Simulated assay, not measured.
Amino acid sequence: MQISITKADQLKSKPDENKLGFGTIFTDHMFNMDYNVEKGWHNPRIEPYGPLSMDPSTMVLHYGQGVFEGLKAYRNKKGGIQLFRPQENFKRLNYSNRKLCIPKIDEAFALDALKQLLDVEQAWVPSQPGTSLYIRPTIIAMDPFLGVRASFTYRFFIILSPVGAYYAEGFNPVKIMVTKDHVRAVRGGVGDTKTLGNYAASLLAGDEAHKAGYTQVLWLDGVEQKYVEEVGAMNIFFVIDDELITPMLSGSILPGITRDSVVALGQSWGLKVSERKISIDEVMDAHASGHLKEIFGSGTAAVISPVGELKYEDTVITVGDGQVGPLAHRFFEAIQEIQYGAIEGPAGWIEMV
């Protein structure tokens, strides 16, 4: 398919790169593509950023049939623009599509469309350290119909947002709180997909955590409420003695691309890396006995997020000395250096625009 390009008549002023937040500023253009049963995916186009027109009965508004992804474009030291493992994002998008009964996309075409959009918007990719251009591919059900079934029409769009640090704390330890009043997902559901309802269902627990002075919620499994799963916006890692542990992918945990990158890098460094079940009691016992060295999260938005404090029921523990741990720092530096082109990563991890 040929992608048509319509340029905006007026361009926005670029923001101050030293004052970028996260997800509040959007670029001049976006990518759109439509689907119906007769034509399949069709009419791919890059056009001025603007509102989507939809009927009040549009199915995504009522039944949540929608999926999305999150990745970033980085300005390297030579001034070029590069992507970090984007093929994995579009592969995961198609996995989510299958779980939500959304027609699959051509992953190679989607990546090419993204590159063309980035070529149009290249001036929006910031160059200050720690900044990037956040990329949000999204697919939503578009049928005007009030009935519970899969939609027959869809919209695939990609929007872009220049961003700084995800957390106001920056690369500093955050505080997280374990919840036993709420569950995020169970095996056989959609906990391993990036779909709209997963995030809506996490808001109440997240709000309660914020009111208690914590940044995010650490979720336990939805059946026994015993095993650690993930944090609201990131996967989770524990360093106990010389073992780097992350919960195994059991069907209710999002298979994070940064998570996979940490596992791969850790193995390449000769670390003992385990993907296994880990109970919250094991974590608390490891802390009590002095064996818990670090906790950190991983995700596209923050890359690596050290955890300095953990609250479980009535117990609050300080992780390590409450500062950034050596492994969290090493992973953060290594992944960022790969993303920004300062060092060469494993084969296939960087895609030039």
Rank of each mutant, 00 (worst) to 15 (best):
S202R: 03
A205R: 01
V223F: 00
H210K: 13
S250I: 15
S250H: 04
L271K: 10
A264W: 02
H182D: 14
V178A: 09
G256L: 01
L220N: 02
E169A: 12
A185R: 01
L244K: 01
V217N: 07
V263I: 14
D281P: 04
R276K: 11
N235F: 03
W269Y: 10
S274V: 15
H210W: 05
E275K: 05
D241G: 01
S202W: 01
Q225I: 14
S250P: 00
R187L: 12
I280G: 01
W269R: 03
G299H: 02
S202L: 07
I159E: 08
L203H: 08
G197V: 09
V262Q: 02
T179F: 00
K211R: 14
G256M: 01
H291I: 02
T246V: 10
Y199G: 05
V178I: 04
S250M: 15
L249K: 02
R276G: 11
A165F: 03
S268A: 13
V273Y: 02
G191Y: 03
P173C: 02
A286H: 05
A168L: 06
A302L: 06
E243L: 00
V186K: 01
T179I: 06
D260I: 02
D181Q: 10
A168H: 02
G266M: 03
V190K: 05
R187P: 14
E229W: 03
T246Y: 04
T193L: 01
K272H: 12
A165I: 15
V263P: 09
V163P: 12
K293E: 15
S252Y: 04
W219V: 08
V217H: 06
I240N: 11
I304Y: 03
S202V: 10
V303D: 14
L271Q: 11
F296W: 08
D281A: 08
K226I: 13
H287L: 09
K272Q: 14
G251N: 09
G270S: 06
D192L: 05
G197F: 02
E275W: 02
K226L: 14
K180F: 08
G290E: 09
M284G: 05
I245A: 02
H210C: 07
V273T: 11
S161W: 11
K226G: 13
V223Q: 01
K180E: 15
V263M: 07
D285P: 00
V231L: 12
I304G: 10
M248N: 11
V174T: 14
A200T: 14
V217Y: 06
Q225R: 13
L271S: 09
M284D: 13
G232Q: 05
R184S: 12
S250C: 12
N172F: 06
G232E: 05
F237D: 13
A168P: 00
G189N: 10
L220M: 04
E294V: 07
D207F: 03
E294A: 06
T258K: 00
V186W: 00
N198R: 03
T179G: 05
E282R: 05
G206C: 08
S268E: 13
A201R: 11
L254S: 04
P255K: 03
G197C: 11
P255S: 08
P162Y: 08
M177Y: 09
V217M: 06
V283A: 07
D192E: 15
T195S: 11
G206E: 11
R187F: 03
M177K: 14
G164Q: 09
I278F: 01
S161E: 12
P162F: 04
V262N: 03
T246I: 06
R259W: 00
G256H: 01
D281K: 11
I176S: 07
M177T: 12
D260S: 06
P247V: 11
Y199Q: 10
L292E: 13
